[in-house]
Amino acid sequence: MTFRRPKMRSIVFLCVRNSARSQMAEGLGRAIFGGDVRIQSAGSEPSHVNPWAVEVCREIGIDLTGQTSKFVGTIDPDSVDTVIRLCDEEVCPVSLSDKQHYYVPIEDPASDDPSLGREQMLARFRRARDEIKEQLASLAAILDRA
């Protein structure tokens, strides 16, 4: 008898502020997985969608303008079967404990450092975007083989 791993039906991406990494992952996830997987994002201290995230995703055809920052407590646990935590050094929200969890540490591209210019900020956000995109493409390839 052969067992097949069930297809992933829904993913929630978590980070603290739900402003950059998880928002980019939400947009990229929708593009990579299409309508086959429900994609959501949330954070433990939601704020706003970072304009740098919007800009670097727009560069590759991903529109984040309709997305909003959400509190993880508003996510219906029944709407999720996989949690992907994107926090690096900060404490990532832990919730939906009975779900399948993946930890993909991505350095937070956001910074309050006033010495960072436009090109440096874009480079930070592009690096995070590209890391997330690569990780999600790998996950999609694994799921396709499952």
Rank of each mutant, 00 (worst) to 15 (best):
M1A: 15
T2F: 12
F3E: 15
R4V: 11
P6R: 07
P6E: 10
P6W: 05
M8L: 15
M8S: 11
R9L: 07
S10M: 15
I11W: 04
F13L: 03
F13Y: 14
L14S: 05
V16S: 10
R17Y: 12
N18M: 08
S19I: 10
S22C: 07
Q23P: 15
Q23K: 08
Q23L: 11
M24P: 05
A25N: 00
L28G: 13
G29E: 11
R30P: 02
A31V: 11
I32T: 09
I32G: 01
F33Q: 03
G34W: 10
V37H: 09
R38D: 04
I39L: 08
I39A: 02
Q40C: 06
Q40A: 08
S41D: 08
A42R: 02
G43D: 06
E45W: 11
S47R: 15
V49D: 00
P51C: 08
W52V: 02
W52F: 14
A53R: 01
V54I: 12
E55N: 07
C57N: 06
R58L: 09
E59S: 10
E59H: 11
I62K: 00
L64I: 05
T65R: 11
V72L: 02
T74Y: 06
I75K: 01
D76K: 06
P77S: 05
D78Y: 01
V80C: 03
V80M: 07
V80G: 00
V80T: 07
V83T: 10
I84S: 10
I84V: 14
I84D: 00
I84L: 12
R85I: 03
R85V: 08
R85W: 04
L86F: 02
D88W: 10
E90S: 12
V91W: 10
V91E: 15
C92G: 04
C92M: 05
C92E: 00
C92A: 01
P93L: 06
P93V: 01
P93D: 00
V94D: 12
L96E: 01
Q100C: 12
Q100S: 12
H101I: 09
H101A: 03
H101G: 00
Y102M: 11
V104L: 15
P105W: 08
E107K: 12
A110T: 14
P114T: 04
S115I: 03
L116I: 10
Q120F: 00
Q120I: 01
L122Y: 07
A123H: 07
A123L: 13
R124Y: 14
F125E: 13
F125V: 02
F125L: 06
F125I: 03
F125N: 00
R126S: 05
R127I: 04
R127V: 05
R129M: 06
K133M: 04
K133C: 05
E134Y: 11
E134D: 15
S138E: 10
A141V: 03
A141K: 08
A141N: 08
A141L: 14
I142C: 12
D144F: 07
R145P: 08
A146H: 14
